[in-house]
């Protein structure tokens, strides 16, 4: 069953002249409109995600993948946004929804894990407090119940429970990322959007954090959109993958098919450039 879908998702930065989309994209080889200078961060992207499924989005910096993630996570960015986002259990196009609907959706059912840990956590607060804040904001009244939920999530995500009252700034990068994941998962959302989940982590820590996420994601049956420049990340996590370039989806399919039988010239180049 489809839980999240996007149709014709487009985001432009600048003062669009009307021809921006036809003058940019994969064939044109650019994402900046030569007529008016508008940046076409992403254009006409459509996708849908079923319950429990993981969708990867890969592409290099500037390919539009983070803009797409922001649109899906209903982050209000600068620029002009078009298209529609639909979410199971919510009426209508959520890009046009009111503040209350968005807030409810983002408190209960959809979580974004920011690329930069600083954007996702208040580092001077305790790790446990960062996670507990969300259910408390969503209206949960029992402090003890919340604390118990945080404790069990920390155990699942392998964050030392005896550190949960220490300020998050005293944690290692890998622990902070796990706390961020706990914060995303604590309200049992149907969908989590992860933007570059390995940013700032040592290689040795990356795989372990991703593997923990994968296990918990499966156990809870939560769907995820994983945005990364790193093919290794989607290989480990994603069932299906979209490849983006110049703001457009140039290829999509089963992740192993994309990695072993890439069709598009750009995907072939991307795979041939992997370490």
């Amino acid at each position: 069953m489809t839980v999240l879908s996007g149709t014709g998702l487009t985001r432009l930065y600048g003062d669009p002249c009307g021809d921006c989309e036809s003058l940019t994209g994969d064939d044109a080889g650019r994402n900046r409109c030569p007529a008016c200078g508008t940046i076409v961060a992403c254009a006409d992207v459509s996708l849908d995600i079923e319950r429990g499924e993981v969708l990867g989005v890969v592409g290099e910096s500037g390919s539009g993948k983070s803009s797409l993630a922001e649109l899906l996570a209903l982050e209000r960015g600068e620029g002009h946004s078009r298209g529609s986002v639909r979410f199971d259990g919510y009426e209508g196009n959520l890009l046009e929804s009111d503040y209350d609907t968005r807030t409810r959706l983002r408190n209960d059912d959809l979580a974004l894990v920011h690329q930069h840990i600083r954007d996702g956590l208040t580092l001077s607060f305790s790790g446990g407090g960062n996670v507990a804040e969300k259910p408390l904001a969503a209206g949960e009244r029992s402090f003890e119940a919340v604390r118990e939920r945080v404790r069990s999530l920390f155990e699942q995500l392998e964050v030392p429970v005896d550190r949960m009252d220490d300020p998050a700034e005293t944690y290692s990068g890998g622990m902070q990322r796990r706390v961020q994941l706990a914060r995303a998962l604590v309200t049992d959302p149907a969908v989590v959007v992860l933007d570059e989940p390995t940013t700032g982590l040592d290689v040795s820590v990356q795989a372990r954090v991703l593997d923990t996420f994968r296990r918990v994601q499966r156990e809870r049956g939560v769907a995820a959109v994983v945005v990364s420049h790193d093919l290794g990340v989607v290989r480990l996590l994603a069932d299906r993958t979209l490849v983006m370039r110049h703001g457009r989806v140039v290829e999509r399919g089963l992740t192993d098919r994309i990695l072993e039988d890439p069709h598009h010239a750009y995907t072939q180049q991307l795979i041939n450039s992997t370490l």
Binding site: G253, L254, D256, R257, E260, D261, H263
Partner: peptide, 9 residues
């Protein structure tokens, strides 16, 4: 084998 498994289209 990869065609059967659809790793190859």
């Amino acid at each position: 084998l990869k065609c059967l498994y659809q790793t190859y289209e």
